[in-house]
Amino acid sequence: MKILSLRLVDFRSYRSYILKPSEHKNIILGENGRGKTNLLEAIGMCINGKSFRNSKDKDLINFQAEAMCIEAKADIAGLIYDIKILMTKEVKTIYINEKVIKSLRELAQIGSKVVFTPDDIFMIKGSPQDRRNFLDSCLENLTYIYEFNNKNYKKVLAQRNKLLKMRNTKDFDSLINIYDRQLVKYGSYLIRSRKRYIDRLLQVSALNFKKIFSQDAKFHISYKSCLEYMEDEREMQKEFLKLLKDNLERDRYFGNTSIGPHREDLEFYFNQKDLKDFGSQGQVRSAVLALKISECQLVKELRGINPILLLDDVFSELDEKRRKDLFSNLGDLQSFITTTDFDIYEEDANIIRI
């Protein structure tokens, strides 16, 4: 996927702006507060209709305006798409080739993006939820089926937890059996999908970490799951159901579900040391970048399209050598990279001054 042109009208700080980017590396250069991240955000919205900053839609409209517009022309696998997003403070309408789409999924199905922000270091340094969010976003970038199962799992989990908090419910036994079977159905799919993805992610990211950080570096990912992976899906579901039954009394006492994919975690290692506890800022940032580039490569491998790579303030904590190694590892991806460093130089990059 390549963005060929972009036009903004009253999007955040941009009253009117036109961009014709390079098909490969684009460096967005400017001082703090000039709108570099806003531009990345607009590019990202053309791909899945949502802000990677989790902003409310109305906050995307320039404070002097009542509506905003983003228009983009994109090349996706040799086909040209015209994408248009019109937004008022009440309504968001998205067009693909002048036709209104009914759901954001229609937009996400034709393209893909991978985003790095400074907050992504929390996928390693932060909570288990941060790491689960990273893993879920990777898999939802590949298939809607994962997103469907994840949403349904969370819905059933909330219902089960609500039931566990009720002390005197005459239908408890029948209801808990219904919720357990639904939880096992959706949860087993999540666990199996995560395990298969992590196995492939580890292979690719270990190589990318060597390229970005050091050829001698050893990078490893460990998936901490409540269940061992089984080739037989039915056997795995039986084991999951058994664990839920075995922990039912404990769950009733605490009022929440203690077993399932919502309790799992990832651990990242550099030369056999846990990056969360012992990694330097440079090591952690290099690991996150290796994971993001690997995510791009797996999107291409499994979906057959190149995602667009958006890198916000990526050069902090990276010395000149690792910056060059990062550039050389981007391959044929179209990338947009923000920086405040006016000394940055990359021979074949398009410089966009903001």
Rank of each mutant, 00 (worst) to 15 (best):
L298E: 05
I80A: 09
N97W: 02
N32S: 06
A287E: 02
E71C: 06
T88N: 13
L60F: 06
Q334E: 09
I28G: 03
I352F: 10
E235A: 13
S13M: 10
K36A: 08
F52M: 04
D57T: 02
A287W: 08
E295M: 04
Q129H: 11
N152W: 09
S127N: 13
L79P: 00
I101Y: 01
Q283R: 02
S286L: 09
S13C: 14
K242S: 14
M236F: 05
K300Y: 12
D57K: 02
Y81W: 01
S112F: 04
L107K: 03
L29E: 04
I344M: 04
P261L: 05
K162T: 15
N177I: 11
R252P: 11
S112W: 03
V204D: 08
D57Y: 01
E231D: 14
K102Q: 13
K162G: 11
P307W: 00
L248V: 06
E90T: 14
V204L: 00
D216V: 13
R181Y: 13
Y153S: 01
D332Y: 11
D232T: 04
F63R: 06
S127D: 14
V100T: 12
S294P: 10
S5Y: 06
G331W: 07
E23L: 03
L227R: 00
N48K: 07
N62V: 07
P128I: 13
K273D: 15
I198F: 12
D59L: 02
L164M: 03
L309H: 05
S103K: 15
T37W: 05
D232G: 02
Q283P: 08
K20E: 10
D246Y: 14
N32M: 04
K273S: 15
L19F: 13
P261A: 01
K218A: 12
R200Y: 10
Q64E: 11
L139A: 12
S193Q: 15
L175W: 04
L241M: 07
N168P: 08
D120Q: 12
P21N: 04
R323H: 09
R105S: 14
D173G: 04
I351R: 07
V314E: 00
N133K: 07
S222Y: 12
Q334L: 01
H24W: 07
K56H: 06
F327K: 03
F240H: 09
N62P: 11
I191S: 05
E301A: 11
E235K: 10
N177P: 11
N329G: 15
Y17G: 08
N177Y: 08
S316H: 03
L60H: 02
Q159L: 01
T88L: 07
N150E: 06
D199V: 07
V114I: 08
N208C: 09
D120L: 06
G44R: 01
K195Y: 15
T93N: 11
C226M: 05
M87H: 11
I96R: 00
N161V: 14
Y229S: 00
L291I: 03
D120E: 15
K165Y: 10
S214T: 11
K300W: 09
C296F: 00
D136V: 04
S222D: 13
F327H: 05
V299N: 08
S55N: 12
F268D: 04
Q109E: 15
T169E: 14
Q64S: 13
E147P: 12
